[in-house]
Amino acid sequence: MKMKQKIGAGALLAIIAIGGVYGVGSVQAANSSTSNSTQKQVIGVELAEQKALALAKGQVESIELKKKNTQVYYKVEIDQGQKEIDVLIEAYTGKSLGVRSDNDDDDEDDYKYTNDTSTAIDSMIGASKASAIAVNHLKGTFIEVDLDRDDGRLVYEVELKIDGGTAEVKVDAKTAKIVSVDKDFDNDDDDDDQDDNHNDD
């Protein structure tokens, strides 16, 4: 699946500093191992979002389940208008692993959702609810969720691990309706990818 690159310079530096992006296979392998954690289940996207917002108020732009060495954690990106906050939440215990602040140095192609007067923040469904909708729709495993604009409306793009590959589910940030589903199977060419569009306008 071709994933759009939407990361600003500050967020890119944060990813490099943290140690890079790891595939879902690494995270699943860590989830199945009990040698480095006494708990077997991750806390989930909703609780990770709640814990991050308790540490830094703002609009959650993305949540990603990641792994560095033997540590599995959620990276929650929070937009506070003039700066972006990265909050790391340990995936098994829910403890904070740190909060990092970056100035908003995005180029003009990027935009801040908190300044979008057409969609009030408090009217959005939230990243965790969008993730739950996508997981329930495809019975997949959560990888990442991002807030983005698609054809003039704000949507949550939820990436999932599904049987045989991955999928991207776009969920309308206000109505909670599924906008589209794009499935990418490991043994298929790009031309054979399934793209299920939902017209909810």
Rank of each mutant, 00 (worst) to 15 (best):
R149F: 08
L138N: 05
T119C: 01
R149M: 11
D150T: 06
M124A: 15
Y156K: 04
K129D: 06
I121V: 11
L147P: 08
L154Y: 15
L138G: 02
K129P: 09
L147D: 02
V155W: 04
L154S: 07
L160I: 09
L154W: 12
G152C: 14
A130T: 08
R153A: 05
V145H: 01
E159K: 13
V158D: 03
L147M: 04
K139G: 13
L160F: 05
G140Q: 12
D148A: 06
L147Y: 01
H137A: 08
E157M: 10
K129C: 00
V155S: 12
G164V: 00
I133A: 00
M124T: 10
D148M: 08
K129R: 00
L147K: 02
A132K: 13
E157G: 03
R149I: 01
E159I: 06
A130V: 00
E159N: 11
T141N: 14
A120F: 02
G152F: 10
A130F: 03
R153N: 12
T141I: 14
A132S: 12
F142T: 05
D163Q: 10
Y156A: 06
R153I: 11
G165L: 03
I133W: 01
S128A: 02
N136E: 08
L160R: 06
T119R: 05
D150S: 15
E159C: 10
I133V: 14
A127Y: 03
V155I: 12
D150V: 15
E144A: 07
V135A: 04
D150Q: 14
F142V: 12
I121T: 12
I121Q: 04
A134D: 12
I143C: 11
A120E: 10
I133E: 04
D146G: 07
R153L: 14
L138Y: 05
V135C: 10
D150I: 11
R153H: 08
D148G: 06
V145F: 00
A132M: 13
D146A: 06
K161V: 04
E157T: 00
D163A: 07
L160K: 14
L147W: 00
D122V: 12
T141K: 13
A132Q: 08
I133L: 05
G152Y: 14
I162M: 02
K129V: 10
A127G: 01
S123L: 10
G164Q: 11
E157Q: 01
R153C: 10
V158W: 05
